[in-house]
């Protein structure tokens, strides 16, 4: 049975579903990376995802236009981000608590809207799988990587883009500076508030897309609390990835691949109790985290509100 794991079908299956599972994590965790690099811990990711998931689903079902769904999920996430930014940047609220507040808000509001506007679980025709010409015909590799829906591709493309923005642009420089030493950035004329508004709203926008990627691309239904805390795992992945996009990618893939591996382990009847199997991604992630954590340092100003004297 264990040898079945090495069959081509199974390997392809594991990799293909790992890549799909990683998609929402990538959007949410990359967005969160921007926020944390600028010093803001947003624990409301899951709530923003739920709002994005619902909005995208609702708009897609009412208009039939999936891209309009994505756009409205971005708007919904951005609005949540805007509110979070106001509360944490202007009102200097404790970030952890307000994040939880926004999580509960998103959880409740998405459910309320769902109950009032739709009322029942239904399906939507989501983004189809795109077969990339030529590439998708490559045996094995094509099946794994190049027969996914467009949101999966975008999610992976986001990683180098995020890396580039953070490390090669003046904006990225400002974001990193604000997260490490906002006083220093301020003294050089960088608006800490503006940078944090930007990153929090960007994070909300990407969280919205993360939710949309579930409701109109991967699962194609909306259900109350459908993210089931996935947004919190995304936050953990940012720590796992040491606040670096490539690290986040590694974490998301590790977590997702082990998750799809355990699905196959159960399907193949490998005698591991299901309770243990489902713990595998978490256990492995924690082990890797413990092994690597001492070498990385969080942005110094993470969770610290910035207030100029006067």
């Amino acid at each position: 049975m264990i040898s079945d794991l090495l069959s081509m079908t199974v390997l392809v299956g594991i990799l293909a579903s790992g890549i799909r599972l990683a998609t929402p994590y990538l959007y949410a965790a990359i967005g969160e990376t921007f926020g944390q690099r600028s010093g803001v811990l947003n624990l409301g990711v899951d709530g923003q995802m739920l709002m994005g998931a619902f909005t995208a689903f609702y708009v897609a079902i009412k208009t039939g236009n999936l891209w309009l769904g994505i756009l409205s999920a971005m708007v919904a996430g951005a609005l949540m981000g805007l509110a979070m930014a106001f509360v944490t940047v202007n009102l200097h609220a404790e970030q952890g608590i307000s994040g939880i507040g926004f999580y509960l808000f998103g959880l409740g509001l998405s459910d309320l809207l769902f109950q009032k506007l739709l009322g029942t679980v239904e399906t939507v025709k989501g983004f189809p799988k795109i077969q990339i010409p030529f590439l998708s015909d490559i045996p094995v590799v094509g099946e794994i990587f190049f027969r996914q829906n467009v949101l999966v591709y975008i999610a992976f493309a986001l990683v180098p883009v995020a890396w580039f923005i953070l490390n090669k642009t003046t904006l990225g420089l400002k974001i990193r500076a604000v997260g490490e030493n906002p006083e220093a950035a301020d003294s050089l004329g960088v608006s800490v508030a503006r940078i944090r508004y930007f990153t929090i709203i960007l994070g909300g926008t990407l969280s919205g897309v993360a939710g949309a990627s579930m409701s109109i691309a991967l699962v194609n239904v909306f259900q109350q609390n459908m993210t089931s805390g996935l947004g919190f795992i995304a936050v953990a992945l940012v720590y796992f990835g040491a606040w670096r996009p490539w690290g986040v990618l590694a974490g998301a893939l590790l977590f997702s691949l082990v998750n799809s591996l355990q699905l196959w382990i159960q399907v193949l009847g490998i005698p591991i109790p299901s309770d243990i199997a489902v713990m595998m991604p978490y256990i492995l992630t924690i082990l890797v985290l413990v092994a690597t954590v001492s070498r990385v340092r969080a942005p110094s100003a993470l969770t610290k509100p910035f207030e100029r004297g006067d």
């Binding site: 420089l173 990193r176 500076a177 490490e180 030493n181 006083e183 220093a184 950035a185 003294s187 050089l188 340092r297 942005p299 110094s300």
Partner: peptide
């Protein structure tokens, strides 16, 4: 008095 430098940069 306290340097306005970002240590990780």
């Amino acid at each position: 008095q306290h340097f306005m430098l970002v240590e990780s940069l």
